[in-house]
Design a protein around this nucleic acid. Structure first.
Lengths: 144, 144
DNA sequence: CACTGGCATGCAACTTTGTTGCAAAAAGAT
DNA sequence: ATCTTTTTGCAACAAAGTTGCATGCCAGTG
């Protein structure tokens, strides 16, 4: 499914397009997002890059990606910070990440339910909706 | 608007109904929620009770209220922790905070849309859902 | 109203999470 | 290859949240 060659090119392209120099940590973190194909908690990223990069670098890289609109953060009620890749057509500020995210409360993994689209609910008058986010917590296949 | 006598009685009733002993910190913190009639950050609570109660007590009290379903926490765009009173029908133990939250991307306010319930979506096989959260971002009445 | 068991609180120490300043290292341009 | 700018790692710090334990307060009983 994931082709290393194309992904590597893709990573370069994303960084260049956003006028960011192509560095090890940026490539690695971006790679994680592309591979996970979904939302990542900061903790996940730290764990998976833990030995290679400094904690601070991860913070700063994510911050940079946020500012450039490469990723966006997903608010959750339990206050865990989630980040997800923006789609290509997600130009600055305009994010369309309209599938449901599942967080396993056992193993902590976040899974993108790409097939489950977020239902659009009716809002009371006056509110102008821009983006719908839905996060489901529970047990995943492995942990149930 | 706020009647001290009825509020005091209300506070006692809420605590008793949830089998919690009526203590100073619990009364004070509950009072803050009733007065504010909205969401409070942990910081707000600490500031307003700061001299009277220990930091730890505030944490534990909020934790207790969460478990009992007296309050629920709500997601915010900047990932700060907000708490809000649950409606009366949010019964003990089996607490489902199943209304949609709206975050205004302009003013940053988080609003509980108490009338809008979170639709339960169908998940792929294997997932055992426990809680559904939905956050809508956009512009609120004042900012549109 | 005093007594008592159990729960809540305060304190201290600690962990975890996020931030800042600065020197060294790596990227990009020439 | 060399120079300039950006990025990284380190260290120190600040903020946020947790845990264990001794003391104090609450509710229930006689």
């Amino acid at each position: 499914m994931v082709n290393v060659f194309t992904m590597d090119a893709q990573i370069d392209e994303i960084l260049r397009k956003n006028q960011l120099s192509v560095t090890g940590s940026r490539k690695r973190i971006l790679e994680l997002f592309l591979m996970s194909n979904g939302a990542l908690a900061h903790g996940d990223i730290e764990k998976k890059t833990g030995e290679k990069f400094d904690r601070v670098t991860v913070y700063r890289t994510l911050q940079t990606f946020l500012e450039k609109g490469i990723i966006h953060n997903i608010p959750t009620a339990d206050n865990s910070v989630l980040y997800a890749l923006c789609k290509d057509d997600c130009s600055e500020g305009h994010h369309h990440d309209n599938h449901v995210h599942f967080i396993c409360s056992e193993c902590g993994k976040t899974i993108c339910l790409a097939d489950v689209t977020v239902p659009e609910v009716k809002l009371p008058g006056g509110f102008l909706p821009h983006e719908y986010q839905m996060v489901v917590t529970g047990l995943c296949k492995e942990c149930r």
